[in-house]
Design a protein around this nucleic acid. Structure first.
Lengths: 248, 248
DNA sequence: CGCCCTGTTGAAACAGATCAACGGAGGTGG
DNA sequence: CCACCTCCGTTGATCTGTTTCAACAGGGCG
């Protein structure tokens, strides 16, 4: 259901590769699989000047901040959320290692959402204007970047489809499967992982309430599709979850 | 609420400019405001080889079609929709003159949705690989393209916010205001326009039912916020609609 | 003219929200 | 180390917005 091509995720072998010249950034690692030569990789290393640590609940950027950098998540998890006129906020996504934050800001030169760390995390600052300069000299990287932006669009479309079409239990199943796929692509278990976000945050993301999420999880436990202990999740019956998410 | 910077819409003066060398495409017009020199514009003209007419209900591309071209809408309206495993379909957006179709397909080399004309329409085929070639030589166009993709992301995020947070009447008000803004940016009336899509299609897009849309429209007519006759819409009280859309 | 498709309106059913109470985990300070 | 407190998660009972089902009106088109 969710289109998460391995190509666009860091190959496990490259995540946090200690041999990276950069030493500050997984951006190089992200790009290794696309076949860059050393000189190109060096240029990539050089535009990333800062690695930034963000503590749990720390803010990476805020809505309306001027747009300067993209951020490649080196370790950790983030959430991005928007705040509307009457103060209500809506989580637009959860991001994990290897994903790129801030692309929504290119069009308006200001960030369109808040980005907050869900756990102690680390990002690489990628000055966008310098990245664009580099991209125009390295066609393969240019193309890769376009694919990353396009992937973001495809993902958002998918999330819209879920919000607009699916019943609560389907949305939640799709959410768990989405996490599963993304962890798998990063070389982690597709069936056993820890939720980094609260029930409240999941509910907000899915357009539901925390009570509903709680009830659904209990229900999934009862049917034997998942085991769960607090935020520790084990997906027992992936096929059943897929069937449910895809509309019974 | 919706971030539709004028920069990213064609300036009214440039839409369907009969003097365009291209003659087949409004892509040149779309790019005029960003300050390209003639030689660059000529290159842009040359990569667009085909203009395509699509009759009402005609298909521009289908889900899973191999990705070759982006399409710039020259005249008309389109809808894009996805079909899930059990046949249900969900409209992910309505596109109008000057907007670019197909960006969701760059990442996977296949289209992720169906694009269908809501009325007799005309598009310019933009071969993507040739466009990328051009972009790397013309930094200002490259940047403009990135802004267009980013704008798409920001828009989708906004739609997600609406689907996830708003009650039916708020969604529908936000929908009408979104159309209003986009027509205004194209030099048309912000208050008087014709819906190109059925109640059914609006409902599907907003995650509601056609009955609900119908009831809401009646309600808006009763309160005097809009006048409506079939698909002819007049927004009488924009401030009231904005207040409603932003959460009372 | 008559058919079909789109839109409207009403009544009943239901999914999920809301309100409320409680239990348990983890962190903090004594 | 324990007691306390707060936040998070769970479960139950009720309420409500939206869907569903149904009937009908109107307009466009063959």
């Amino acid at each position: 259901m969710v289109n998460t091509t391995p190509f666009l995720s860091p190959h496990p072998a490259f995540v946090a590769n200690p041999k990276s010249h950069c030493g500050t950034c997984n951006l190089r690692d992200l790009c290794l699989p696309i076949g860059l030569v050393d000189a190109e990789l060096d240029r990539l290393d050089h535009i990333v000047k800062h690695r930034r640590r963000i503590a749990r609940d720390g803010v990476l950027y805020r809505m309306n901040d001027p747009f300067v950098n993209l951020y490649a998540i080196r370790v950790g998890h983030f959430k991005t959320y928007q705040v509307n006129a009457n103060g209500a906020h809506h989580i637009s996504g959860f991001q994990m290692t290897g994903e790129l934050l801030g692309m929504e800001a290119i069009s308006s030169y200001r960030h369109q959402c808040n980005a907050v760390a869900l756990e102690d995390s680390e990002v690489c600052e990628v000055p966008f204007s310098e990245l664009e300069n580099l991209l125009k000299d390295v066609p393969i990287m240019l193309h890769h970047f376009h694919r990353m932006m396009s992937h973001e669009i495809a993902q958002d479309r998918n999330a819209m489809l879920q919000l607009g079409n699916l019943r609560a239990e389907q949305r939640f199943a799709a959410f768990l499967l989405n996490l599963s796929t993304r962890y798998k692509n990063r070389g982690y278990s597709a069936t056993h992982f820890q939720l980094r976000m609260s029930r409240e945050e999941i509910a907000n993301y899915l357009g539901l309430t925390n009570e509903t999420i709680s009830r659904l999880l209990s229900q999934f436990k009862k049917t034997g599709w998942v085991k769960a202990n607090n935020r520790e999740i084990a997906l027992i019956d992936l096929p059943a979850l897929r069937l449910l998410a895809e509309g019974k």
